[in-house]
């Protein structure tokens, strides 16, 4: 291994280490669960608003819980640029997933309007799409942050989508279930993180 590879490996290790506090898991899981709730109560349009609320909450958690324990680091400009690019791509994919779901839903509703049995079957499978489509975002997070557990979350979301489709449930239940699991994992991680890294008295 040459010096450049060694430096890149160390930088990557430090970067990955900053994402193991569990706060992102708590907020992402909470957002999923909260996206599911309005769906269950018949207001699915409120769902996409939730992630926008999650970002400031996550920033507050990072600043108040993580920073005093883990310290603060500014990564290289290349890393920051890459991160912004990934975030924009993930946001774009999220919007595309939402649009795809709405278009598919409308398409099926219009196409099979007269055939109620076929319509019910198709809608049942489309209901499984929201959790499954969100798994793409989880995979993006796994690649961007170098966190393998987000691949497992993607699998969990696909599973939630399948359960929703097979059991003929509202998509909200899939999001609520998967989100709760992710949040609980995040809470366990955060508890371990706080135990491992108590707040130090000084930062100067």
């Amino acid at each position: 291994m040459n010096a450049v590879q060694g430096a890149a490996k160390l930088e990557s290790k430090l970067y990955r280490g900053t994402w193991q506090d569990g706060t992102l898991d708590i907020v992402a899981g909470g957002c999923l669960a909260l996206m599911g709730l309005p769906w269950i109560f018949g207001y699915p349009a409120l769902g996409p608003i939730v992630p926008a609320l999650g970002v400031p909450i996550w920033l507050v958690l990072r600043q108040s819980i993580t920073a005093p324990r883990m310290g603060q680091v500014t990564f290289t400009r290349q890393r920051q640029t890459r991160q912004v690019r990934w975030l924009l791509s993930t946001f774009g994919l999220g919007v595309a997933a939402l649009v795809l779901f709405v278009v598919l839903y409308k398409f099926v509703m219009v196409r099979h309007e007269g055939d109620s049995d076929l319509l019910a079957m198709k809608v049942q499978w489309i209901a499984g799409l929201p959790p499954a489509l969100l798994s793409v975002l989880s995979l993006c997070a796994a690649l961007m942050l170098g966190q393998g557990r987000f691949v497992a979350y993607a699998g969990l979301l696909i599973l939630a989508g399948l359960v929703v489709a097979v059991a003929d449930l509202d998509p909200g239940w899939g999001l609520l279930g998967a989100g709760t699991v992710v949040s609980v994992i995040g809470m366990v991680m955060l508890a371990r993180f706080m135990k491992r890294y108590p707040v130090t008295a000084t930062n100067s």
């Binding site: 160390l10 005093p68 310290g71 000084t202």
Partner: peptide, 23 residues
């Protein structure tokens, strides 16, 4: 130095956590 070499900047606590050194 190795830690600072691969980042733009790092604060006291971050270095403490990464190196395991005391304050």
């Amino acid at each position: 130095l190795a830690c600072l070499y691969v980042v733009e900047s790092a604060d006291f606590v971050f270095l403490q956590r990464q190196t395991g050194l005391t304050g």
